[in-house]
């Protein structure tokens, strides 16, 4: 039974990664790309948690009390490092998602669309100059 569940979990994680890559690469909508990126990073985080999990009976959290028996603790404890990695990765992911949301908002305001194909087509209509910087410059 446990084997069945772990196999189902692994297969669904693989399918998740495939779906998210499909979403990032082939969906032109920026918001859909953003959703696919969150799916990808969450899937990788779940993989890290699964790797740190110990199938002991019962598994115990990685907090050692002074009167615990060390030998029992070591054989049953869940690995704490993947949890620390996932916490860090979640914080980084938050920063990246906020950046992408801001970028999507700016793209919508400037282009009037969040479709990246349209955006990349219309992007070259603007002249590649840096003139805007110097227009307000005093003419000395």
């Amino acid at each position: 039974m446990i084997m069945l569940f772990s196999n189902i979990l692994l297969i669904s994680l693989g399918v998740n990664i495939a779906i998210s890559i499909y979403g990032i690469v082939s969906k032109p909508n920026m918001v859909k790309k953003l959703i696919a990126i969150t799916i990808l990073s969450d899937t990788v985080n779940v993989i890290a948690i699964v790797i740190g999990y110990r199938l002991a009976n019962p598994p115990i959290p990685p907090i050692h009390a002074l009167n615990d028996d060390y030998r029992v603790f070591i054989t049953r404890v869940v690995d704490p490092i993947p949890q620390a990695l996932v916490l860090t990765a979640i914080v980084i992911g938050l920063a990246l998602i906020i950046f992408l949301v801001f970028l999507t908002l700016r793209i919508f305001r400037v282009f009037g669309s969040v479709n990246l194909h349209e955006v990349l087509e219309t992007m070259y209509k603007e002249l590649p100059t840096e003139v805007h910087l110097y227009e307000e410059e005093p003419s000395d």
Partner: peptide, 13 residues
């Protein structure tokens, strides 16, 4: 501006 935004979108995603 249009061009920086579009290039940053492709790069960052």
């Amino acid at each position: 501006r249009r061009r920086p935004l579009a290039s940053a979108a492709r790069y960052s995603i």
